[in-house]
C-alpha cells in the first residue's frame, strides 16, 4: 500500500503542471474575453462584439484562437488596426506597449464613444484607458478607471471591480 501511495505521488509530481501554460499573450486574450463578459455597454448593446488590437500581432492571433475555441465566432470579431480610421467600430480596444504619442493618436477620435480601452502599461492607464492590464514579474493584474468608464456610458460588474487591484 505504501508503495502504491509513493507511486501515485511520484506520478502526480511528474504529471503536467497545474497551470495551463498560457503564454503572456494567451493570458491577455483570456483576460480581454472575461472583461467583455463583465462589462456593460450603453443601449443598444453591440450586435457583434469587436475586439480591436493595436501593436501586438501575437495578441491578435491569440484572441482569434480564443474566440474560435469558445465558439463565439458568430457574435464576435477581432480586428488588427493599422490606423485609427476604424477605431470607432471597436467595442474593445487593446493598446499594447504604446507610448504617449501613440496612445494619444488612438484615443483622439474616440471622444466620449463607449469603447472599452484596455492598455498594458501604467502610462497608458493613466492616459485614458479604462482598464490597465499590467504584469508584475509573476502574474498579470488589472486596474480600473471607473470614473472614465462611466463618463463614456460603460459600466462594470461588481465582480470585476472586486478583483481589480485598484479602482479609480
Amino acid at each position: 500500500m505504501t508503495k502504491l501511495l509513493i507511486a501515485v505521488c511520484f506520478s502526480l509530481f511528474l504529471s503536467e503542471g497545474k497551470a495551463q501554460n498560457l503564454s503572456e499573450n494567451e493570458l491577455k486574450a483570456a483576460f480581454l474575453y472575461r472583461f467583455s463578459q463583465f462589462s456593460k455597454w450603453p443601449p443598444p448593446p453591440p450586435d457583434k462584439l469587436s475586439f480591436c488590437v493595436v501593436g501586438n500581432p501575437d495578441l491578435y492571433q491569440a484572441i482569434g484562437s480564443l474566440l474560435h475555441e469558445q465558439q463565439v465566432d458568430d457574435d464576435t470579431e477581432v480586428i488588427e488596426l493599422p490606423d485609427n480610421e476604424q477605431v470607432s467600430q471597436c467595442d474593445i480596444l487593446f493598446l499594447s506597449q504604446q507610448n504617449r504619442q501613440q496612445t494619444q493618436y488612438w484615443l483622439e477620435d474616440l471622444a466620449q464613444s463607449p469603447v472599452l480601452v484596455v492598455a498594458d502599461t501604467s502610462e497608458g492607464f493613466r492616459q485614458g484607458a479604462m482598464i490597465g492590464l499590467i504584469a508584475d514579474a509573476n502574474n498579470l493584474s488589472f486596474r480600473v478607471n471607473l470614473t472614465d468608464a462611466k463618463r463614456r456610458g460603460l459600466n462594470f460588474s461588481a465582480h470585476l471591480l472586486k478583483l481589480a487591484t485598484e479602482v479609480r
Binding site: Q20, A137, N139
Partner: peptide, 26 residues
C-alpha cells in the same frame, strides 16, 4: 483535465503564473 480545460475564470487568470518573462512591468 487537459482536454476539458475550460477558459479560466477571472480569479483563476489572476492566479495564473506567467511562465515566461513579461514584456513590461511597472
Amino acid at each position: 483535465l487537459a482536454k476539458n480545460d475550460p477558459l479560466p475564470e477571472l480569479e483563476d487568470l489572476l492566479n495564473q503564473q506567467l511562465n515566461q518573462l513579461p514584456s513590461n512591468t511597472q
